[in-house]
Simulated scan of single mutants.
Amino acid sequence: MKSICARVLGGLLLSALSVAHAEQPLGCVEVTVGGYKAPNYDCLSQQMGNNPDGAKAAQKNQEALNVPVNKRPPNQVGLATPAATSTRMGNTFGTSVKPQRPPN
């Protein structure tokens, strides 16, 4: 009777350990072939994608890209800036209305 109970308890313990072991995520395996390491990119992508704050970060990135026109820098909207005008006019900036041109 004791041996039957011991076997049943041992079997239950093994099944509980196997279930607990199956629930834990397995680590990524790197394989070395011919001296070159080949990581498992599917595993790494899955580990990187399990970030609960990832959706919030993606939303903030999308909001940062959608800046209203009135808050964008002038060079992104196509307006002239003093630096761009100075480059275009050359050494005549502030002294002439004709931009500096190299001789033909």
Rank of each mutant, 00 (worst) to 15 (best):
N51D: 15
E63Q: 12
L13D: 08
Q47F: 05
G54W: 05
K2C: 06
L79N: 14
S18F: 13
K60E: 15
V77Q: 04
L17E: 09
G94F: 00
S45L: 10
N70W: 07
V8Y: 10
G34R: 04
P102R: 09
Y41E: 11
Y41V: 10
L17N: 04
P74V: 02
L14G: 00
N70H: 11
T92R: 11
S3E: 15
L13N: 03
G94L: 00
N66W: 05
A83D: 11
Y41C: 05
L13K: 02
E30H: 09
K37M: 06
Q62A: 14
F93M: 03
L44G: 03
E63F: 02
V97I: 09
E23K: 09
L44F: 02
K60W: 06
Q62E: 11
A22E: 09
A83T: 12
P103F: 01
D42V: 09
P74N: 00
H21Q: 13
N51I: 01
N91V: 09
A6M: 15
V29G: 00
G27L: 08
G10L: 03
A20W: 04
V8C: 08
A6E: 13
A55I: 14
P39Y: 02
V69E: 10
L9C: 14
S18T: 14
V31S: 04
T95C: 01
N91M: 04
L13V: 08
S3N: 14
V31D: 07
E30C: 08
P74H: 01
V97T: 14
Q62T: 12
N70C: 04
G27C: 02
S15Q: 05
N66G: 00
P74K: 01
G54C: 06
K56Q: 11
S3V: 15
E63H: 03
N61Y: 12
E23S: 07
Y36T: 15
V29A: 06
M48A: 15
C43A: 06
A22M: 06
